[in-house]
Amino acid sequence: MLQSDLTALWLTIKLAFITAVLLLVFCIPLAYKLAGYNGKFKPFLEALIAMPLVLPPTLLGFYLLVLFSPDHAFGQFWFWLTGTQLAFSFQGVVIGSLFYSLPFVMQPLVAGFKHINQTYNEAAIALGLSPFKRFVHLIIPLLKPSIGSAFALGFAHTLGEFGLVLMIGGNIQGQTQVVSIALYDHVESLNYTAAHQLSLILLAISFACLVLLFKFNKSIVGVKQ
């Protein structure tokens, strides 16, 4: 039992890390555009990005199950591209997590860009800096706390993911059995001792990760955001 729990823990941390990194890569340019965009579609875009906040994870999971199916276009496309299936695979769970944690990564980044635009960007323009210099030497360094927050939130949120993985994971050890699923298994089979043990370990690891992340975040720049 303990070995499978360790596997689940490692898998969960891997999942959270990869999801957070991928989301950062995807969201930084998107947030930059969104922060600077003030057209009439803005409320719709913002609502779309915030959707995973309000949708039940099981609903997300259910629709992903449909999406991944080889009966449908996306599932077929993926099979053509990689020769594998998305459902019940780590890659599938990563894709699900990308949806699940998207708003948690986007929102700090958008807030960061907005703050920079309002406060510092204009001053830099007035001082006569070129757009390129501004982006590289001002905006990106000032964005570091937001990037830290976005990563921390995306990571922490994915650590706790359950409903979505339950729907599309298939509970396969080493591939899709993350800690929340392993915990659920223990509770369902009335193995409360194992459930307590695993919970405590997860709590400790999550807490330690967050402490580290926020410490790191603070040391980059002591900026009041």
């Binding site: 199950l65 080889p70 009966d71 599932g75 459902a87 019940f88 339950l166 659920y184 369902e188």
Partner: peptide, 14 residues
């Protein structure tokens, strides 16, 4: 995680 869920896996074609 239950028999219905297993059913859904097959039903969705996965």
């Amino acid at each position: 995680n239950n028999i219905t869920h297993a059913f859904q896996f097959v039903q969705s074609g996965n």
